[in-house]
């Protein structure tokens, strides 16, 4: 059970949060101009790596805000948390 430092509320128990998959996948601005393959890349392809991963999390049972997290999936160390729209910390 992680202890997550919500950028708006502070440290809260993991059960207040929902994981939202890989971060920094921007919705294409002009979907109609994409080929099926390009659209599929956006729609379906997600990384699931062992190691440092960029993720989206939502404080679903709290302030309902989305934010980003850098987590090492091999030991669940949370390396950084930053707000939506902010630049990811360099590795």
């Amino acid at each position: 059970m992680f202890l997550i430092n919500c950028p708006y509320c502070g440290e809260r128990d993991q059960q207040e949060f929902k994981a939202g998959g890989e971060a920094h996948i921007e919705r294409p601005k002009q979907p109609t101009e994409l080929s099926d393959d390009e659209w599929a890349e956006y729609l379906f392809m997600r990384k699931n790596i062992k190691g440092v991963q960029f993720e989206r999390w939502n404080h679903a049972h709290g302030c309902r805000k989305w934010f980003n997290m850098v987590r090492d999936t091999s030991n669940d160390e949370i390396k950084a948390i930053y707000k939506m729209g902010e630049k990811p910390p360099s590795q």
Binding site: R27, R56, K65
Partner: peptide, 10 residues
């Protein structure tokens, strides 16, 4: 939740 997601992130 889904609507909030789009509003906040996209």
């Amino acid at each position: 939740g889904k609507l909030e997601d789009y509003l906040q992130t996209e």
